[in-house]
Structures are given as C-alpha cells and as structure tokens.
Design a protein around this nucleic acid. Structure first.
Lengths: 338, 338
DNA sequence: TGCGCCGATGTAAACGTTTTCACGCCGACC
DNA sequence: GGTCGGCGTGAAAACGTTTACATCGGCGCA
C-alpha cells in the first residue's frame, strides 16, 4: 500500500540497488540515471521505511531516553539539552517515562532494543545493582544522575556534593550556626549526595550536625510546606537557616513560614537547590544552587555519541560531572541574633 | 553479535516459529515447550529486535511527536499528557523538535516513516497549506493548535478565542474601557486566535478597538518587557488594562511597569494567557486564562488512537476543542479612574 | 475402521531495505 | 591486440521477525 523502493525502481526503470545508491550517495551513478530516480522519488513522495533501513544497517539513528517522569521544568530542560545534541548528530529521540523502579526501566529498555543505537537512562531512585540488571548487554548506555554503577557504564552527574557544600559554606560564613537541612526522598541519589555535601561542609565549618536539624521531605512543594510549618514552633534551639534539597521544597517552605508570620530572611534564611525559573520570582527571590540542566542533558548525549564512536567497548566507565554554582539572591542573610 | 530469536530456538531445540508463538502467545504451545523457551529467553536475556518486528508486523507501537521547540513548561506538559495516553496504549514516543518551518517539519516527518504508527504535529507557525504539503500520505496525523487544515486531518485546538473573549469581558465588566492587547508572533495561529477573541469581545462590549491599543510582541518575557516599558509614557489616552497574549509576556510587562514605578493593579491591570506555574508566584499573582496543556496532549493522543483504530480513513476530519478557563488572581482590578 | 478435525510443530516466504558479488563495457597499458 | 582495472549496473543475499501453509499424531464420531 505505501510506496516502496521497488515502485520507484520500476517507474525509473532501474534496479532497487540503483535507487538505494542514489538516495544514499553510496556509489557512483550516472547523472541522467540519478536525475530520473530523483524525479520519480519526488513524484511518488517516497521516503524509505525506517524499520527496514534500521534492520539492514544495524543502526537506528535514534537514542533511547528513559526518564522517571516528565513532570516539571527539570525534565523539559534535560530533554531539550539532549535533543539539541542528538539533532546535531542526526538522531531522533525515543522517550519513555514513568519508570520509577527497576522493573519499569527494564521493560522500557527492552522495548527499545533494535530501535535505538544507545540509551540515556535517568533513574535516581533505582539502586545501582538493580539498574545494572535491567540494562541490556549490547546497548551502549549513559546513566544520568544515578547512583554510581559498578558496571562499566558511562555516566554524567551533577556535582551535588560540591553544590551543597558551597551553599552550606555560604550560610556558615554569614554567621549561621544552626542550619537545618530538608532532605529529598530517601532512595533518591541526588538527594543523598546533597545531604552528604551538607554534612561535609558542616563538619568543615566546625558546626554540629544535630539529628534534629535533618528534616524529611519528598522533593515536592507540598512536602516543603509541611516540613517548614512545624519549624516556627520549635523551642529556642530553632535553626536560623533552612537548606532545602530542592527548589520546589524551598518554595513550599517559604510559603509556610510566611503564613506563620515569619520574616524571610530577617527571622530565618531559606535556600534551595536547582534554580528552577520560579526561584527568581518568589518573594523574596530564592538563593539557590544553579544546575545547568540542559547542559547536563547535552553532555550526556555527547558522551553517548563518543561511546558509540569508539569501536572497542572499553570497560573504562567514563564519568563526567557537571558543575553546580551558587546563586545568591534575597532569601538569605545573617542570622537574627547577629 | 546480539542474541536473536534463532539462538533461542537452537538452544531450546525448537523452531523460531515456536519461540515467536511463545513470546507473543499467538498460538497454543505445549506447556513444557513453553517453559523451556521461556527459560532460555531469560537466560540469554533475549528481547526481540524492534525494527524487525515493526517491519514484519507493519506496526511500530510508537507515535511520532513533532514540535516547534522544547523550551519551557508548555511543551513539558504537552509531552507529559501525550506520554500518559501513549503509555496506556503501550506505545512509545519518537519526538523531534525545533521545526519551525514547513521544510523542517517535512524532513522530521519523513525520518519517521516506518517507525511510527501515527503523527502528532504541532506547528503553530506553519500555514495550513504548506503543512498539508509536508505531511506524508499514508500516515494518520493529528495536528495540535494549528491553523485549521482544509485537508482531512484530525486536530485538537485550545479554545483560544473563547478564552480571550472571556478575559476581555472580565476586564470590561470591571469597568475598563481602554484595554490594550499585546500580540504574539504574527504568523502564530494561537496568537492570531487570541487576538480575534479580544477583538470580538471588545466589539460586543461596545468598546472601540483602537489600533494604538494593539501592541506587537513575540511570546517572550523579554518582548513583554520591551512593549510595556513604553506604556507609562503614553499620553492621557493611556490604556487602563494590558492583556498579554501569553503569560511569559505578561510577566515581562509586570516587571517593566514595576520598574517604571507603577502600581499593579492600582494604576493598571495586567493579565495573561496560559497559566504557567510562574503566574501564581509573581507579585501580584497573575490573572490569566488556564489551559490544561496536559489534557490537550492527552486528548490529541487519544484522538490519534481512535483514528488508528478506524479501518476506513474517513475524510471527516474530526476536530476537538479543549476549553480555556478564566483564572482571576490579583493583577487586575477596576481602572484607576473608577 | 475410516474420515475429519484440532492441537502442536516445522518450513519457508514474506516485510523493505542495503550491500556484496558478478558482469559488461570502456580506455589504457605493455 | 590482449590483459587489467575502474565505472555503472543488476541479481540476490542478507537483516530478525511474524505468519501462512504443510505435516503429523491423536481423538471423536459415524
């Protein structure tokens, strides 16, 4: 029913081989023959069947992108960065989201076999071990922001530790001594890394890491609101600064503290992580850590292409880290006692 | 090199046909045979080659998504809605963006032939005619928010006219008589429809549509800022309300008017369109028109599946409109004179 | 007992490309 | 003038599946 290379060949009175050669410029063809073939191709609006081409060439010109979710600006930016790089290389993107557990990732990945040349996998909530089990054997893969795999799998991560450390240091140097940290989901690798950075910086600054200073959150605005709501009622040992593990929670916290009649940053400093666009618009504007998410995506795609280009699948497990940079706005200041 | 169905067949001591039957449950197979095949499949971590499967089955279990861009929350939400619906139907998404002109759309679409079952195309800046030329013959397509095609092509659009009309009516009923409209890009179909809605409502309210009331913008925050900057200096015929064709521009305008020392909404009302998340967080929070973008995406995907399911390609050109709803916040009020 | 049917399996032909191999032709070289 | 090599082309074999068709044993039924 659909027009195939055979139809073109028949009408142009050449063999299918010649048509293929014309379309791919893969071998010399006489000028008049080429012209005839191209004319028919245009007339029939022929375009080669991607599946057949992929099958024969053993290369799909597509990258698989497996994401835990598609909600919010983070993924939008990530995808944009990836797309930019993929488009440059003439590759399409086969995306699949809502895969939170290893099983989900596994089925998504299996469905992609034979239709993509490589995989970009982001699964911050899946342990390294089960992820390794879910990934296929033959397919080059780059993991994004995932707990480090022992397997020989390239990866790109954000410098969560460095960013969190820089932020904590900043707060400490403003004079804060009791700095609370609002965690993300417990199994999330990003969240864990940020907590580590906070802890390390607190130690370096000679500040105690009291367990009551570490609050539990879930990366949602709602969660941030709930966690912060209880804060004003804390006794005199109340923290003077709140470091939320992501901006969404920081925004929620801002809201809660505001509702409780607190002055930010006068009574308490509140800071976040990610620098989502909203961070600039809340009042007071949010001090945070900027992650160039599109760069993260682009770097991951670029790395994947490099892996694809190297003929030998070296087990060197290339690892890249994209920097995270402190952005100081108006939601933090010196502690009230100072 | 990669493991194929033949390897499985050989090790399980059956024919490839039987393996296929087991994996697809397409014909009865004896229990012990099935068990043997499944065991080997697991052992070898076999998963069928998608390209081969697609080629033979003549169905890809994938949808093509062609977008003008990937920037910002709009596309993120759109994609999420589409993904939701596609995932339900067991389909993957092949996305391709940065196609602003008909040529770009054309190459993107051609690259997808044979790898997708249907197409979701969003190209608000491409005229109906050239879009029709770019779309392939055999591939079912649903256009999103695109100027109505005369071709028999299903489409889903946002009720831009209705939304703009509702907003204009709201402003008029607050007492505004000079309501300025900040346009989007000139060839953008959404922008054009919103302008039409504004004009219609002005007429209905018996208000004059002065040409000096219609400002040119480009849907960016920057553009909104520039357009609004000149506003305070306007003579006594200055508008008392500014209706921006999208939220990004409204936010820019808010900023510019603020910088010029104007009080919003005391001195001037500012409203937008889209209800992007930021709209809630700017001060004053932005009155706007809410478009459930994820619903738009989901509806489009659902419609495409329905088209795919109908065996006869009827030329009925199903058309769906998703409603747009007025959201009143704090950036608008009665005009200063009132 | 013979006929027909069904259930379980194998064989092989597609699907639409790309690519290897072979072939005929022409000009060049010894 | 025969051999050699490159250029343009066609025939056909892949690529990894699914599936129509064939085969074969066993069972029910007349």
């Amino acid at each position: 029913m659909a027009v195939t290379i055979k139809d073109v060949a028949r009408l142009a009175q050449v063999s299918v081989a010649t048509v293929s050669r014309v379309l791919n410029a893969s071998a010399p063809v006489r000028d008049d023959t080429r012209a005839r073939v191209l004319a028919i191709t245009r007339d029939l609006r022929f375009s080669p069947n991607g599946a057949a081409r992929t099958l024969k060439r053993r290369q799909a010109s597509a990258l698989g992108v497996v994401l835990p979710d598609l909600y919010g600006e983070f993924f939008s930016e990530l995808l944009r960065g990836i797309d930019l790089e993929a488009q440059n290389a003439g590759h399409a993107l086969l995306v699949s989201s809502s895969h939170h557990d290893a099983r989900g990732v596994s089925v998504a990945v299996r469905a992609m076999r034979g239709r993509v040349d490589g995989l970009l996998v982001m699964a911050p909530e899946v342990s390294a071990k089960s992820l390794a089990g879910a990934l296929p054997d033959g397919l080059p893969t780059v993991t994004l922001n995932t707990a480090p795999t022992q397997g020989a799998c390239a990866s790109v991560t954000v410098d969560n530790v460095g960013g969190a450390r820089a932020m904590t240091h900043h707060l400490a140097s403003l004079g804060h001594r009791r700095i609370a940290f609002l965690c993300g989901p417990s199994r999330n690798a990003d969240a864990a890394a940020r907590l580590r950075g906070y802890r390390a910086a607190m130690r370096t600054a000679g500040l105690p890491v009291d367990d009551t200073l570490v609050l539990h959150g879930d990366f949602t605005e709602q969660g941030g609101w709930q966690a912060a709501r209880l804060l004003p009622e804390t006794s005199r040992r109340r923290p003077t600064a709140l470091f939320a593990a992501n901006d969404a929670m920081a925004v929620g916290a801002l809201l809660a503290l505001h509702e409780a009649g607190m002055n930010i940053p006068g009574d308490m400093s509140v800071v976040g992580f990610d620098d989502i666009p909203i961070a600039r618009y809340v009042t007071p504007s949010l001090t945070t850590v900027r992650v160039a998410i599109d760069v993260l995506g682009a770097r991951a795609a670029a790395l994947l292409f490099r892996v694809l280009a190297t003929p030998v699948r070296g087990g060197d497990a290339h690892r890249e880290v994209v920097p995270a940079e402190l952005v100081v706005r108006h939601s933090c200041g010196p502690p009230p006692s100072a």
